[in-house]
Amino acid sequence: MDIDTLRGIFTALALIAFIAVWIWAWSSKRKRAFDEAANLPFADDDLDQQSKGVRHE
């Protein structure tokens, strides 16, 4: 095996890993967890305002 064969194998493995992560990220099983994670910054703002005594009216 020469270096070009190793580079080709590494490239193929990297492509397979990328596709696997892409499928995992776009799977419908992960949607709920990603939606919760997307709303975390807003939850922190609510906690900060409550601790400072700011009221929402």
Results as ranks from 00 to 15, higher is better:
Met1Glu: 01
Asp2Tyr: 01
Ile3Met: 06
Asp4Thr: 07
Asp4Arg: 10
Leu6Gln: 09
Leu6Val: 08
Arg7Ile: 12
Arg7Cys: 06
Arg7Asn: 15
Ile9Pro: 00
Phe10Gln: 13
Phe10Ser: 12
Phe10Asp: 14
Phe10Asn: 14
Ala14Trp: 15
Ala14Thr: 09
Ala14His: 12
Leu15Lys: 14
Ile16Phe: 14
Ile16His: 10
Ala17Phe: 14
Phe18Asp: 04
Phe18Ile: 08
Phe18His: 01
Ile19Glu: 11
Ile19Gly: 03
Ala20Thr: 10
Trp22Leu: 14
Ile23Val: 15
Ile23Lys: 06
Trp24Tyr: 14
Trp24Gly: 01
Ala25Gly: 03
Trp26Val: 08
Trp26Glu: 10
Ser27Gln: 13
Ser27Trp: 10
Ser28Glu: 14
Ser28Pro: 03
Ser28Asp: 15
Arg30Gln: 13
Lys31Phe: 01
Lys31Leu: 03
Ala33Cys: 05
Asp35Val: 03
Glu36Tyr: 09
Glu36Gly: 09
Ala37Phe: 13
Ala37Val: 04
Ala38Lys: 09
Asn39Val: 01
Leu40His: 01
Pro41Phe: 05
Phe42Trp: 09
Phe42Ile: 00
Ala43Asn: 03
Asp44Glu: 13
Asp45Ser: 08
Asp45Asn: 07
Asp46Lys: 14
Asp46Asn: 11
Leu47Ile: 11
Leu47Trp: 10
Leu47Pro: 00
Leu47Glu: 11
Asp48Val: 05
Asp48Ser: 05
Asp48Asn: 12
Gln50Lys: 14
Gln50Trp: 07
Lys52Gly: 00
Lys52Met: 09
Val54Gly: 00
Val54Gln: 05
Glu57Gln: 02
